[in-house]
């Protein structure tokens, strides 16, 4: 039985059947590491993030990196043509990915990315939204909830004011954006389950 890794953070879904599980994992890890580093660099630039404790910085990044990457790479999911571009640059149709074993997570990612892209946000709005996604006081293992909560509130206020200024006639956009947060959580949970299954396999 042929194995596939249908994650667009991978260079390609094809897995060399001659490689050991460890090698496959190392190659995959090598391909997503730069994107994770980018998220850390992004976090460092969020005003106030570096003032949080080291423990809380790590906890927020551990819990939220996947969600930030989904927002950051939403444009890899081409809703109209039903295809996904992998980081290696190759495009794969949803049908092809389905035959490789992708399931509900891929469909849910498409739904999410379509709705997010339809909001037509600017790069600045997307960045501020990613900061709000990352700085969430209800992540597990946060030791100073008050500090994270205070930073989260500041970021949400800044996002609201930016959206209100840029879209004065579309007051629902801010609400729609906040409603994306639970959607991201559920994608994150589905993704963790798949990673676990992969690791166990």
């Amino acid at each position: 039985s042929r194995m596939y890794l249908v994650c667009p953070m991978n260079t390609s879904p094809q897995v060399d059947p001659h490689k050991s599980g460890q090698d496959v994992w190392e190659e995959f890890s090598h391909s997503f590491t730069p994107a994770v580093r980018e998220v850390v660099e992004f976090a460092k630039k969020i005003p106030g993030f570096r003032e949080l404790s080291q423990h809380d910085q790590v906890s927020l990044l551990k819990a939220g990196t996947f969600e930030v990457l989904v927002v950051r790479f939403a444009s890899l999911f081409h809703v109209k043509e039903r295809s996904v571009t992998f980081l290696g640059g190759q495009k794969y149709s949803v049908d092809a990915l389905r035959t490789m074993g992708s399931g509900d997570l891929l469909s849910s990612m498409f739904d999410f990315c379509e709705k997010l892209m339809n909001l037509g946000l600017s790069e600045e709005e997307m960045s501020l939204f990613m900061a709000v996604v990352l700085v969430s006081a209800d992540r597990s293992g946060i030791e100073n909830v008050n500090s994270v909560e205070a930073l989260q509130e500041t970021l949400i206020r800044a996002l609201r004011s930016l959206i209100t200024r840029n879209h004065p006639n579309e007051s629902a956009i801010f609400t729609k954006l906040l409603l994306k947060l639970p959607d991201l959580r559920s994608l994150n949970n589905m993704h963790s389950e798949q990673l676990l299954a992969f690791k166990v396999h």
């Binding site: 890890s29 590491t33 994770v36 580093r37 850390v40 660099e41 460092k44 570096r50 080291q54 910085q57 790590v58 990044l61 551990k62 819990a63 990196t65 963790s192 990673l195 676990l196 690791k199 166990v200």
Partner: peptide
């Protein structure tokens, strides 16, 4: 397996990427 981020090496990548400026803070 309760903490996929740690198991999958994500924590290590995050800590290394953060380390530079965390060391600055400690000085």
């Amino acid at each position: 397996f309760n903490d996929p981020a740690s198991n999958l090496g994500l924590e290590d990548i995050i800590r290394k990427a953060l380390m530079g400026n965390l060391e600055e803070r400690q000085e």
